[in-house]
Design a protein around this nucleic acid. Structure first.
Lengths: 184, 184
DNA sequence: GTCTATATTCCGATAGAC
DNA sequence: GTCTATCGGAATATAGAC
C-alpha cells in the first residue's frame, strides 16, 4: 500500500474523530499532504469510500486485539480494550463509533452497514470478556453480561465525548470506576 | 416570538439531533417551511447563532425541569430526567450534548462556551438528585455522587447513540438497568 | 420587521494530463 | 498508476426589496 494512501486513511481517521465526518473536507487532507484535493479521489472516489476503509481499518485492529490475548485473564483483556479508548483520550479524539453515531442518519447506507458490523463485534468482544470474568470469579456484577457490556461501552464512549465539553478529566475517573465496580 | 422563528428553532433542533450540526443546511429548514433559505438568516444571521439559541432553549427546558419537582422523591426526579432521554429515543434522536460533542472541535468558540454551561448544569442536577437519594436511603451506590452521575449520564447519552448503529433496543434495557442498579 | 434575489466561497466529484 | 485542472452544484452569507 502506497504511503499516500496510508496517510490519507490515517489523516481521515483523525479528522473524523477530532472534528466529525461532515466537518472535514478532502482539502483538509490534501493540504496537509501537499497534494491537490482531487488526488484523494484517485484513492477514494467518494467520501463514503474513504469512510468505509477507515472503518475497516479500525475493525481490523479490533480483530488483532481480540486474537492477541485470547487466553489472558479477563481483567487484562478488559484493560486492553479500555486502553484503546485511553489512547483516543490522550489525543483528544472520540472513538470511531461515537464519532459516526451522531451523524449516522446522514451517512450513506453502505457506510451505515459497515458500522453495524463493527459495533456488533465490539459488543460481542466485551460481552465475552465480562462473561468469562464472571464465570471465573474475576468480576462481580448483577446484570447479564450482554447488558453490562453495553453499560461499560457507553461509559467509555460518552466519557470521551463529554470530557471535551466539560473540559475536566472525566474519562480517567470513569475508567477507574469501571474497573473498581467490576472487581470489588 | 414569531411562529417562523419558533419553527426554525424547532426544526434546527430536530435536524441537529437526527443528522448532526454539520450535516444540515439552512435549505433543509427553509424547504420545509416554504420560505427561502436566506430568510433564516434574518432570524439567525450565522449558523452558529442558530446553534446558540437552540442550546439556550434546551437549557431553559432543563431549568424548568429542575424547578418543577424540587421536593419530590429522588427516584421520581431521576425518572423525570431519564424521561427527557426517552423522548429523544422515541423520536430517533440523540441528546443535544451527544450530538454536539462529536463535532465539538469544529464549532465556533461561542457555541462551545454555551455547551459548557449546559453540560455543567446537567451534571450538577443529576449529582444533586443522586446525592439526595443516597442520603435518604432511596439509592444505593458506591461511587461519590459526582462520579456516579457521570456514569449514569454517559449510559443514557451513549445509549441513544449506539442504538442507532446496532438497531436493537439497547436504550430501554440501559434505562431499566440504571434504575435497578440504584434501587436494589 | 420580514423576506427574496444575489454574491461568494467551498465542496465533492469528473475528465484528462503525465 | 498517480496526480492536476476544472466543473457543477450546494453551502453560508450579504444587500436590498417589500
Amino acid at each position: 500500500m502506497s504511503d499516500t494512501r496510508q496517510d490519507i486513511l490515517s489523516l481521515g481517521d483523525s479528522l473524523i474523530r477530532q472534528r466529525g465526518y461532515n466537518a472535514f473536507s478532502y482539502q483538509d487532507i490534501s493540504g496537509k499532504l501537499g497534494i491537490k484535493n482531487a488526488a484523494i479521489h484517485y484513492y477514494f472516489p467518494k467520501k463514503s469510500d474513504l469512510a468505509i476503509h477507515i472503518i475497516r481499518a479500525t475493525h481490523s485492529r479490533l480483530s488483532s486485539l481480540e486474537d492477541s490475548n485470547k487466553s489472558a485473564p479477563a481483567l487484562q483483556r478488559l484493560k486492553a480494550v479500555i486502553e484503546t479508548y485511553t489512547v483516543s483520550h490522550k489525543e483528544n479524539k472520540v472513538c470511531l463509533m461515537g464519532a459516526f453515531a451522531s451523524e449516522f442518519f446522514s451517512l450513506d447506507e453502505n457506510v451505515q452497514q459497515e458500522l453495524r458490523t463493527v459495533a456488533a463485534d465490539i459488543h460481542k468482544l466485551v460481552t465475552t470478556i465480562l462473561a468469562d470474568g464472571k464465570k471465573n470469579g474475576e468480576f462481580r456484577f448483577k446484570e447479564v453480561p450482554k447488558v453490562k457490556a453495553m453499560l461499560v461501552i457507553t461509559n467509555l464512549l460518552a466519557g470521551l465525548q463529554i470530557e471535551r465539553i466539560t473540559g475536566k478529566d472525566e474519562f480517567t475517573v470513569i475508567q477507574q470506576s469501571i474497573i473498581k465496580d467490576l472487581t470489588t
